[in-house]
Amino acid sequence: MRFILCLLLGGLTFQTWAETLSFGVVPQQSAKKLAALWTPVLSYLSRSSGIDMQFTTAKDIPEFERRLSRGEYDIAYMNPYHYTVFSQKPGYRAIAKQKDKQIKGIIVVHKNSPAKSLSDLKNATLVFPSPAAFAASILTRAQLAGQKIPFTPRYVSSHDSVYMNVSRHFFPAGGGVLRTLNNMAPEVRSELKILWTTPPYTSHAIAVHPRISQATRDKLVRAMLAMTEDKQGLALLTKLNFKGLEAASDAQWDDVRQLNIHLLDNLLE
């Protein structure tokens, strides 16, 4: 259990954290950008829940996956496919998700691209965040394969890298999601347009490791729901392009499980 120690000194109360919960965020964007967006949110939740949470991430998505497989994060914000994998082992359990949100993958091209449909990308080298990035890579690649459009995938470190590469004409197209595209600097975003969008699926999970007690889980959920109802809290979530947070349950990701994806089965061994 994590707990707070309060010291009374000269009539003043000083609050210190005895322990800290790590909150891992999937590295869809640079660590610097993610820290700037998530640290204020976690500070708010720490104060309101009485449970200290500290932002952390990984250098890239494959490393984040390895850390999830080892259970290194107490709490993690992970993509829908990650959740279906790591809910099996080490047993992460969803407690919350973005409010009123389903995730869609997008394929972006340069604003001056002549491409009008996916078939115009035939035989091209296309850029994606990582093989197991759910909406940005798994869903978009599956659509290309389903339409029998031959292409060569190239993987980079993040969604940001995809957008930068396409905006600079290094690749004709790449995979992403609308939320991360909207979080890009205007000078990059303005150079891109969306060529195609996937069908919707349940969005990212905020999930806890099984070592976290039910009492702690309940406190976290109450704080997240209250944050959505508070003007200051909602303003912080809006910077993430979240409409708010809502409670979640494991079965909500059954739509992703039905896709029968096995890309990360090696991490379950």
Results as ranks from 00 to 15, higher is better:
residue 264 L to V: 10
residue 122 K to W: 04
residue 32 K to E: 14
residue 247 A to T: 10
residue 42 L to R: 13
residue 68 L to M: 14
residue 239 K to M: 02
residue 131 P to F: 08
residue 9 L to I: 14
residue 239 K to I: 00
residue 202 T to L: 00
residue 216 T to C: 00
residue 191 E to T: 07
residue 175 G to K: 04
residue 66 R to Q: 14
residue 243 K to L: 07
residue 177 V to W: 06
residue 36 A to V: 03
residue 162 V to T: 08
residue 218 D to Q: 13
residue 31 A to H: 06
residue 82 H to F: 03
residue 236 L to Y: 05
residue 141 R to I: 05
residue 148 K to Q: 15
residue 44 Y to E: 07
residue 269 E to M: 08
residue 16 T to I: 11
residue 26 V to T: 10
residue 48 S to Y: 14
residue 14 F to T: 11
residue 151 F to L: 07
residue 214 Q to P: 05
residue 66 R to N: 10
residue 156 V to W: 09
residue 230 D to W: 14
residue 268 L to S: 04
residue 105 G to N: 09
residue 1 M to I: 10
residue 47 R to T: 10
residue 76 A to S: 14
residue 27 P to L: 07
residue 37 L to P: 02
residue 12 L to Y: 14
residue 185 A to R: 15
residue 212 I to L: 15
residue 15 Q to A: 01
residue 68 L to G: 01
residue 40 P to N: 04
residue 174 G to Y: 06
residue 120 D to P: 12
residue 111 K to N: 13
residue 207 A to Y: 02
residue 224 M to E: 04
residue 172 P to V: 11
residue 81 Y to Q: 00
residue 2 R to Q: 13
residue 100 D to M: 03
residue 63 E to K: 08
residue 65 E to N: 15
residue 261 I to D: 03
residue 231 K to L: 10
residue 261 I to S: 03
residue 211 R to S: 13
residue 180 T to S: 12
residue 67 R to D: 02
residue 129 P to H: 14
residue 32 K to R: 15
residue 157 S to P: 01
residue 149 I to D: 09
residue 211 R to I: 03
residue 148 K to G: 01
residue 180 T to P: 03
residue 21 L to P: 05
residue 115 A to I: 11
residue 129 P to A: 12
residue 91 G to K: 11
residue 130 S to T: 14
residue 203 S to N: 06
residue 62 P to D: 08
residue 103 I to K: 05
residue 227 M to I: 13
residue 197 T to A: 00
residue 46 S to M: 08
residue 196 W to C: 00
residue 29 Q to N: 08
residue 15 Q to I: 10
residue 187 E to K: 14
residue 151 F to I: 07
residue 237 L to I: 11
residue 156 V to M: 08
residue 128 F to H: 05
residue 3 F to V: 09
residue 258 Q to L: 01
residue 162 V to E: 06
residue 248 A to Y: 04
residue 251 A to E: 13
residue 59 K to R: 11
residue 81 Y to L: 03
residue 153 P to D: 09
residue 27 P to Y: 09
residue 141 R to H: 01
residue 196 W to K: 03
residue 127 V to N: 02
residue 147 Q to G: 06
residue 248 A to T: 05
residue 160 D to K: 14
